[in-house]
């Protein structure tokens, strides 16, 4: 079946890899912070794009609602909310501006976008996929990032129960992936970087995990070794 799929944060990293992977088989509506003309250069030619910066959550959800109306989707099958940001710093010297940005982009905007998607996902008994992180268990130099991802995990657990029978809700926790986010965040992985998965490998693992629908699910290096980027049902 050709699906209608919304992917946020699709102009770089995991989101872009996922959009690139799914575009040949499905109808993709991508969102990101980049200007439309820049996004169109990197996204697959048949993917739609709306510019949705998530630093203001209320604006983000309103823009998504409008964008879904403009492309004429009356219902869609999958919302995969990938967009995220983060900064590396000492907890006691964290700038409140960055702290708030991390919470707004990763947590608040994602929550409000999930809410905006409900009426259209419900029409197809669709699936909402949130992207957490293995860092949602806590880590000292990215405390706000961890908090935002843990918040998503708590949200997904409760919402999955609330929406049961209407829209299936899942959260997937990717392990480290070699994306531009680390550089933007000011993190240098060093030798450990060799163990980071490529975005396209993670996109494969994500596609299979979305098709299965289990939640929560950690997509770690061990799962990769176990063949979870090769063996799985496609969307």
């Amino acid at each position: 079946m050709r699906r209608k799929i919304l992917i946020t944060g699709a102009t770089s990293g995991i989101g872009l890899a996922l959009a690139t992977r799914l575009a040949p088989r499905h109808e993709i509506l991508a969102t990101g912070r980049a200007l439309k003309k820049d996004a169109e250069k990197i996204l697959p030619a048949n993917a739609g794009y709306i510019r949705v910066p998530q630093s203001d959550p209320l604006v983000a959800s309103a823009t998504i609602r409008e964008g879904l109306r403009d492309v004429g989707w009356t219902g869609f099958h999958n919302a995969i909310l990938v967009a995220g940001t983060g900064y590396v710093c000492e907890a006691q010297s964290e700038d409140p501006v960055r702290l708030r940005e991390t919470l707004d982009v990763n947590l608040a905007a994602t929550i409000l976008i999930a809410r905006a998607c409900l009426p259209l996902l419900e029409k197809t008994n669709g699936r909402l996929t949130l992207i957490g992180s293995t860092a949602a268990r806590g880590s000292s130099h990215i405390a706000s990032y961890c908090a935002s991802k843990a918040g998503l995990a708590g949200f997904a657990r409760s919402l999955r129960s609330e929406w049961r029978g209407r829209v299936s809700v899942q959260i997937l926790h990717p392990g480290p992936v070699a994306t531009p986010m680390h550089e933007k965040a000011g993190y240098v992985p060093g030798r450990l970087g060799a163990l980071f998965l490529s975005p396209s490998t993670m996109a494969a693992m994500l596609e299979f995990a979305v098709a299965r629908g289990r939640s929560p699910r950690t997509l770690s290096w061990f799962r990769y070794i176990g063949g979870e980027s090769i063996f799985g049902r496609r969307l």
């Binding site: 806590g138 708590g154 409760s158 919402l159």
Partner: peptide, 22 residues
């Protein structure tokens, strides 16, 4: 988990992990 207060659950998970991180 807390069905019926999904955003409250989110807020309290977030603060718990922030506390653990710092």
């Amino acid at each position: 988990g807390y069905p019926g207060a999904a955003v409250y659950a989110a807020s309290k998970d977030a603060i718990a992990i922030y506390a653990r991180s710092i």
